Computed example of a mutant assay.
Amino acid sequence: MGGFRYGVGDVAVDSLVKDSVKEPVKERPIPRPVPALSAVALVALLLVGCTGPEPATDPGTTAEAAPSPSVSAAESSPAPSPTPVVVAPERPAAMDDDGYEGAEAAAVYFLSLDDYIMKTGDTTEWEAMSHPECSTCSKRLEQAQHIAQNGDTFTGGEMSANILHTYEQDEATGIWPLDIKVSVEPVVITDQAGDQVFADDAVEAEQRFEVLRQRDQWVIVNIVGSQHIDGDDA
């Protein structure tokens, strides 16, 4: 997969919020986990046939030997693996709020959509929440579409999010800036032949989300921040 690079917020673009961000209106150190999406797998059953014993022949008789019973053994082969079931994340009710709580819920929900679009190719909700100015949003959309077009399989990538700071709404733009710590599980991408075409370790990143309420809909305007491998120093 030439040029493919997995990551969260790996494209930095100019912020629409002034550099002089106001003091945080609150801090939320309590982790807000994004529901992990799980794949349902079934164990393949092997069917093994039995071979019957040879019939005993009386050595004192000249009777015609009975024919040996036919041997029937089912060919041992694994059952085909079922298609993994990927459930769409549930939209939180808090997104109906038009204040900072709605902005927080929208950012966390958007993160929960990431591995879903990679695994299913269903990008409808992602596109609806992506502002045209969000280059990171469009990059992730392109990657999801690339995986779907190639028929590749995306495994892993479940996210959890911890909101670190929520800042005052920017008066000029109406944007709510949020600082979020994002943790991503390891990722493996395989092609239709089952060959691995991409893999990445667990990732942690601290990112600035810029969230805007427009026409009663939350959209992600921008995602910027640093990214590092789990275990490295920030």
Rank of each mutant, 00 (worst) to 15 (best):
Pro89Thr: 14
Met118Asn: 06
Thr136Ser: 08
Phe110Tyr: 03
Thr120Arg: 13
Ala106Asn: 01
Tyr167Leu: 02
Met118Gly: 10
Asn150Lys: 10
Ile163Arg: 00
Ala93Glu: 15
Gly99Leu: 03
Asp98Ile: 13
Glu133Gly: 08
Met95Leu: 00
Gln143Phe: 15
Gly102Asp: 06
Glu158Ala: 09
Pro132Asp: 02
Gly121Cys: 04
Ala144Pro: 01
Val87Asp: 13
Ile117Leu: 04
Ile175Ser: 04
Thr155Tyr: 11
Lys119Trp: 11
Arg91Asp: 06
Asp96His: 08
Pro92Arg: 01
Thr120Asp: 07
Tyr109Lys: 01
Met159His: 07
Ser135Asn: 11
Asp122Asn: 12
Leu164Phe: 06
Asp122Phe: 15
Ala88Gln: 14
Pro92Phe: 02
Ser135Gln: 15
His146Val: 04
Ala106Ser: 10
Ala105Thr: 01
Ile147His: 13
Gly99Met: 06
Tyr109Pro: 03
Ala128Thr: 09
Leu113Trp: 09
Gly156Asp: 11
Ser130Leu: 02
Ile163Tyr: 01
Ile117Trp: 10
Ala103Ile: 10
Pro92Trp: 10
Ala107Leu: 07
Glu101Ser: 09
Ala106Tyr: 00
Glu125Phe: 07
Tyr116Met: 11
His146Arg: 10
Gly102Pro: 04
Asp97Pro: 09
Ser130Pro: 08
Arg91Tyr: 13
Arg91Leu: 15
His146Tyr: 15
Thr136Ile: 10
Gly121Lys: 11
Leu164His: 07
Met159Glu: 12
Ile147Trp: 10
Ala128Gly: 03
Leu164Ile: 01
Ala103Leu: 03
Ser160Asp: 09
Asp170His: 05
Ile117Pro: 13
Ser138Arg: 02
Lys119Asp: 07
Gln143Pro: 03
Arg140Tyr: 15
Met95Gln: 08
His131Val: 00
Phe110Ile: 03
Val108Met: 04
Met129Asp: 11
Thr136Trp: 08
Thr136Val: 08
Ala93Leu: 11
Lys139Thr: 04
Ser112Tyr: 01
Thr153Leu: 13
Tyr100Arg: 05
Asp122Val: 01
Pro89Ser: 12
Glu104Gln: 06
Val87Phe: 09
Tyr167Lys: 06
Trp126Lys: 03
Glu171Met: 02
Thr123Val: 12
Glu125Pro: 15
Gly99Pro: 08
Gln143Gly: 03
Gly151Glu: 07
Ala94Ile: 06
Gly157Asn: 04
Asp170Cys: 07
Thr120Leu: 05
Ser130Gln: 12
Gln149Gly: 05
Asp122Gln: 06
Gly99Lys: 09
Ala103Pro: 08
Ala94Pro: 07
Ala107Gly: 00
Val108Thr: 03
Leu141Arg: 02
Glu125Arg: 11
Pro92His: 10
Met95Cys: 01
Ala88Trp: 13
Pro89His: 10
Thr136Leu: 04
Ala94Gly: 02
Asp114Ile: 14
Lys119Leu: 02
Gln145Trp: 01
Ser160Lys: 06
Ser160Leu: 08
His146Met: 12
Glu127Asn: 01
Ile175Thr: 14
Gly99Ile: 03
Ser160Val: 10
Glu171Trp: 11
Met129Arg: 05
Thr155Ala: 12
Gly151Pro: 01
Tyr109Met: 03
Tyr100His: 10
Ile117Lys: 09
Ser160Asn: 02
Lys119Ser: 14
Gln149Pro: 15
Asn162Met: 00
Ser160Phe: 05
Asp152His: 14
Ala128Leu: 14
Glu101Asn: 04
Tyr167Gln: 00
Arg91Ala: 03
Asp152Thr: 14
Thr124Lys: 14
Met118Cys: 05
Ala144Val: 05
